[in-house]
Design a protein around this nucleic acid. Sequence first.
RNA 1: GGGCGAGUACCCAAGUGGCCAACGGGGGCAGACUGUAAAUCUGCUGGCAUAGCCUUCGGGGGUUCGAAUCCCUCCUCGCCCA
Length: 433
Amino acid sequence: MPAPDPTDFLPELEWRNLLKDVTDREGLSEHFSTGRRRIYSGFDPTADSLTIGNLVPIMMLAHAKRAGHDAVVLMGGGTGLIGDPSGKSAERQLQTSETVERHVAAQKPIFQSVLGQVDGPAHTIVNNADWLTKLSYIEVLRDVGKHFSVNVMMQKDSVKSRLQDREQGISYTEFSYMILQAYDFLHLYRDAGVTVQFGGSDQYGNIVAGTDLIRRDAFTRHDEAETYGFTAPLITKADGGKFGKTESGAVWLTADRTSPYAYYQFWLNCSDEDVKNFLRVFTFMTKDEIETLEAEHAKAPGKREAQRTLARAATTILHGEAEMLQAEAAGKALFSGDIASLNETTLREVLGEVPSSEHSKASLEGADLIDLLIETGLATSKREAREFIANGSVSINGAKAEEGRTMRSADLLHGSVIALRRGKKAWHVTRWA
RNA sequence: GGGCGAGUACCCAAGUGGCCAACGGGGGCAGACUGUAAAUCUGCUGGCAUAGCCUUCGGGGGUUCGAAUCCCUCCUCGCCCA
């Protein structure tokens, strides 16, 4: 497809509440509106997946792409060997290079699936291990280190707090992290013509270190170089809770850790106060579309159209439309409790979201529901199991279970499964063979 | 080393010989209501063979018909003195 004419997308980031610090706001607008630029953001391979917080910079890369610029994903295969002290109160455990490589490989598909769906120039993915591991120490000290003032580096918040804390010092290794990240920018500038870096607001210091290094490096060769940096604000929740956490832990961007169903549910369950902001940050909906939706939502908040739209859009962006539709169907079936009418294929997909256990068919007929509730972990004692049944909170295949209920082979759906539910959300599938 | 005080169920905390499986609050779970929400209301919150039995009040031992409650001892924590 033809790439659109490059435009300044900073105003768009602004109304989406995605812009915090900018090194030179006017200069950068000018920069974006006068040509196709290369813009990058870095990602730490601290785990074999990324969390929903990392989605913010990915969305920003997508906006850059949509505005006709070249999005570059920098994977920290090299810096990940060191560890960024930003936002960390304690020295990090060093990771082996095998681990870091594995993490990089596992994270890559996330960028592919989000950015791959976005119109615009093709994005590129680079790994700073490719150049950082080739650097010699002497070279770094002479060419890069000379441009850094230790006095300034010590002023950086993440370093300062660690210097003042007697319990937790900072190693030379982590202290040097900033230099490596700055060098990344220099390398990408020289090698690939990248002129803009952005990241989370905790990255501002590292980003500025990069633009400074590039300027100084150019100056030593009697040249000039103008590069830019900006940051996105931290995503917050109206109730003050930490964004991206659920009872069952962090929300991840890969299906092996957070299923599309769970991901959809996460967005669907967000509060009325948060949904407005999230629609701006985590979807590509236009300002008009969002405002129209908000007006509708205000009329009938109980319908939660805003949350549903957000969940659909966000799940589609990450996992694609097919997965989104399945997640939505699963949610519908599980919350209505109406699963007995589903066909076998749909049922298997829906119940894939739910914990399960294997049982022997021989023991099915006449088995006590109370015992089964304990075996499946839906109840922790017989007393509790009886209580749940008496309260009417247990259902078998979506039908409320009455007291004294025993299991029978007629309960089997499609000859092999029985779905138990306690309360509204606790499901368990028993498979009988 | 000496003196005082405290240790109760997931957490806080009442109980100071039988009416104690142990008040109350928090948290949790469930039900009603609802928007898969918030607020509110209700129930449950040691186990089981459930109108009864078993195990629990820092550990062990003792007194007693009977102890979380009294005595001895040990352990842990807090405060004060050295």
